[in-house]
Design a protein around this nucleic acid. Sequence first.
RNA 1: GCCGCCUUAGCUCAGUGGUAGAGCAACGCUUUUGUAAAGCGUGGGUCGUCGGUUCAAAUCCGACAGGCGGCUCCA
Length: 584
Amino acid sequence: MDAQKLDAIRHSAAHMLAAAVFELYPGTKLAIGPTIENGFYYDFKFPEGVTLSENDLPKIEETMKKIAKGNHVFKRREVSAAEAKKFEKDQPFKLELIKEFSKDGQNITLYESGPFTDLCRGGHVDNTSEIPLDGLKLHKVAGAYWRGDEKNPMLTRIYGLLFSNRKELAVYLNMLEEAKKRDHRRLGKELGLFVISDLVGSGMPLYTPKGATVRSSIINYSRALNKRIGFQEVHTPNINKAELFKVSGHYDKYKDDMLEVKSHYSDEVYYLKPMNCPQHTQIYAAEKRSYKDLPLRLADFANLYRDERPGELSGLTRLRCFSQDDGHCFCRDDQIEEEFNNVLMAIKEAVGTYGLSYWIRLSLRDPKQKEKYLGEDNTWEKAESTLRKLLKENAITFQEAVGEAAFYGPKMDIMAKDSIGREWQISTIQLDLNMPQRFCLTYVDKDGEEKHPVMIHRALVGSPERFMGILIEHYAGAFPLWLAPVQVQLVPVSAKHIDGALALGKELDSLDVRVATDTADETVGKKIRNAVSQKIPYIVVVGDKELGGEDWMIRIRGQEEQVKMSKNDFIDKVINEIKDRLRV
RNA sequence: GCCGCCUUAGCUCAGUGGUAGAGCAACGCUUUUGUAAAGCGUGGGUCGUCGGUUCAAAUCCGACAGGCGGCUCCA
């Protein structure tokens, strides 16, 4: 089925949903009901006292199907704004829309389908019988603000899935099930990677030895990339004086999202830092800089703290305490392009190493909301055109996104797609012409004049913690060898082989292989089962044969048949595989 | 923060007004195991917290906390 037809079907179904809700809950106010990727939704304001939950969906779905089965024809009717207003007199949201649509004196269209007529610009099937009801499922109830603005009333949104047939719906529902199995919160628990304690606080996960291993593997890889592209690691404190953020502009914009720290011995107010950039300016400012000193590239993995609103916290993807593989490059105008390319190359390599596909988003300022951003128009225009030119000259395909810029400058964001097609913003390169001015950063140029450097903010994979969450789902917990918290699991056949296995473990450990030995008093079968469910890349049973120098039978993750190999070949294989992935 | 839902043993979950259950895990004993679950036994819960209704609350009501699905936000 072509996309346009499917869209018409979904759009028509949204009308059926509204019709059903209208029948079941008279007095409901209607907002809007657009189509979305997998179906449609409709926003409603239910009468006072009616609360809708997921339990009510089957009933609504049934009513919806009943109405659709009435073979109603979608009839288009063009009316004047005045007529439309009269028709929708009890529908405040519709009236608001009519007012807007008719600004230029245009007519309004109404679509009638049987018992239900809705203000609508069109795009329907001819007859409600064309809606494939076996591909329909109402699946979620959610809250949503009218027109997406939190100052507006909260409406109730009903989401519907709609595909062209039963089979496609089943495929999609199955995909949702698979995604659930990959959920990093669930896998994080099953694989023992991190825990969240109510006593410590939400949004502040504790990484277990295994989780910390994955996390530091991610960080060490970024560290190696940093080194290659000339970023030098610095170390900076977690708190600093409020003054720093007042100068940077963060205080004005994000004060409510910063955590305050008070000293008992002075009146000074400190803040836990939500980002590193202002501190890095102070490393720059500590010396008189020459044009010859630039670029100065600083990298930092310090913990960052943001007081996110409780409803926004989730697993590892939205945290109150996290870090970034952050870096700031201070350079001259004529170095911008080279520095951007430098960083972009490292990002491309990182994204490739992790096996993520991606696209590039050029995040620009929203010119209609200038108050949200720092700096002058011409500064922004210069920064934005520099980035656009750079992308075009390098034949990099990108999509522009208005309103996605940082408050101090435009960004180039790398949007990664994971193995099941979900998108995440990870890497970013940002051009900032504002902060160097605010901090009065200068360098002495060739001609003896003091000039402001350009500041490039960048992150390779963003936050290692968040990225770990993304990777858990991307790999479904089956980390590649170099990231796996346990790379080789040794399974002694019986108690008398434990000492031998432990000695082997020591040997592997000394070669920097992450190895664990299962000393439990269990059957071999049980120990294999446990190791397999922990998604360990290599499992080796250790018994008389192995300890006696015979070939080993290696159980490789993902395949049931074991591979025969000598001990030395196996060790070489593992070591080379780890090294391969880490060669930067 | 907003709308809705959820919270029972370490984990996954049953239990709809009459005093708490299963599987897995843990621990003990037996077993000494050759590639996805050995057998038997034991311990473990003021049913998220606080308050209310009731002769009686895991169960009904309220507040708070935490979680989930969205919305808003995301330096």
